[in-house]
Amino acid sequence: MIEDASPAWGVAGEFLDFVFTRREERERFLDWLAWCLQNESDKPNWAPFLYSETKGSGKSTLCSLVARLFGEENTVSQNNVDKLSGRFNAPVLTKKLVICEELNLRQDSPQGNALKTYLTESRVMTERKGQDAETVDHCCCFLFTTNHAPMWIEPEDRRYYIIEFDHDGHAAGPRAEEFSALVGRLVEFMEDERAMAGVYRALMERRLSNGFSAKTLNVERDGTEIMRRIHAASEQTVRAQLRELLDDRGQHVVPEGEVVKLIREELGQNPNSTRHIMIEMGWSKSKVKWGGCEYARAIWVRDGYWVEQGRVKGPGHYSQPISEHLAGARQPGAAAPGLDVCVEAPLY
């Protein structure tokens, strides 16, 4: 970059004002970007995630602008995370800026779990072709884009700051021509070394907002509207699926360990929010003895039912031994560890 350039946003500022329709999201993104440039030897623990349902909204253009600020030699851009999560990932993790476009994963997938590690851990395992794997320090910052709502992100996940590009300059929007012209001017602007040096200087001299942290993302305080919608929809989906599954099985009590197993294996979801989901479904947790065990085990009980002296009891004089009830709820051929065996269930 040109050393004597004065801080100036120029056309880049016009572009940012257009694509960010909410000031607080623009400021948080710029705080993140400025911190990453000002602290090149350190890494943030969360990443901006640009989402738009429509095409032509400027996500890729913004990625190009950010890449120019870091420099081509310090940046790698890829579709999804195949190179990043693959075996020979060293060429990616040696860059400062990693851009992953069209990111679309499954919840709790191997690629998603690898991404979590890279976002939060500063020491990771890398490998180059023809060389042994080794643990290295990395200081990557990540920038993601997608045209699909990232429903795979777990509720309360603090690694992704999702920003919706919902301006009306997208390809089918009423201001499409205006926005297209602005993008054209920005492309020319990015070819001007002095102009880009002005943007770089503005970010290097930027004073970060009070309360900003590149290490911790407070999703309760700083979550965007699209983040709240995605998190709520994710919880509602798991809750509805689990309720339907337990209703189909006619199950009025379920051991803690089996709830975890159902969510993970039957529904393919992360079981970390087990307690939250069961409470919202109206179930309550007790510790009771059953099946000949001498100690109490954690078990969830459906609303309107209760457990007493090793039996499930409910409306209409319903009464059945817990072990019989659980055995009757098993699916044919399915293993049911912890139902009759005296094993202490994990408490989540």
Rank of each mutant, 00 (worst) to 15 (best):
E101P: 07
P315G: 02
E258K: 14
A67M: 08
G338W: 02
G71T: 09
C139F: 14
G310I: 09
E3V: 07
N104T: 07
T61Y: 03
T94D: 11
H167M: 07
R87D: 03
E121L: 10
E53I: 13
K43S: 15
R311D: 09
N113I: 13
D340P: 01
T224E: 00
V98G: 05
K83Y: 10
T54N: 15
E3M: 10
R239P: 01
V238F: 08
G314R: 04
I2S: 11
P44T: 10
S109R: 02
P44Q: 07
D192S: 04
V219E: 00
E193K: 06
E220R: 08
L246G: 09
R87V: 06
E205T: 04
K289A: 14
L208R: 02
E258I: 14
A335G: 13
A8W: 07
V260I: 15
H325W: 00
A114Q: 08
P48G: 11
P48A: 12
L97G: 05
T274Y: 03
E220N: 09
S57K: 10
N218H: 07
S323C: 06
R275D: 12
N45R: 15
A233S: 08
L245M: 14
K96R: 13
S286T: 14
G56I: 10
L242G: 07
P255C: 11
A202N: 06
V124G: 04
D82Q: 12
L267H: 11
D132S: 11
Y160V: 01
N218W: 02
F88L: 03
F144P: 01
S122D: 14
E24K: 15
R249W: 13
T216F: 14
A335M: 10
F144T: 01
G211L: 03
A335R: 12
V259I: 15
A47G: 13
L217A: 05
S323H: 05
Q131W: 11
C36E: 06
M204K: 08
R302V: 06
R185F: 00
K43P: 09
D222Y: 05
L30K: 02
A327P: 00
M151I: 09
G10N: 01
I263F: 08
N39E: 08
R185K: 10
S323T: 13
E27P: 03
L105P: 00
V66S: 04
M151L: 13
D248W: 12
W283Q: 05
R302C: 08
R194K: 12
G316C: 02
A335Y: 09
F18E: 13
V253I: 13
V183H: 02
F144G: 05
E134K: 10
E40N: 10
E193D: 03
V312G: 04
T135M: 14
R311A: 14
D42V: 13
T75R: 08
W300E: 06
D168G: 12
V98H: 06
A171P: 05
L84H: 08
A34G: 03
S284K: 14
G211W: 02
Q107I: 14
T126S: 05
K55V: 14
H325I: 03
R201H: 00
G112V: 05
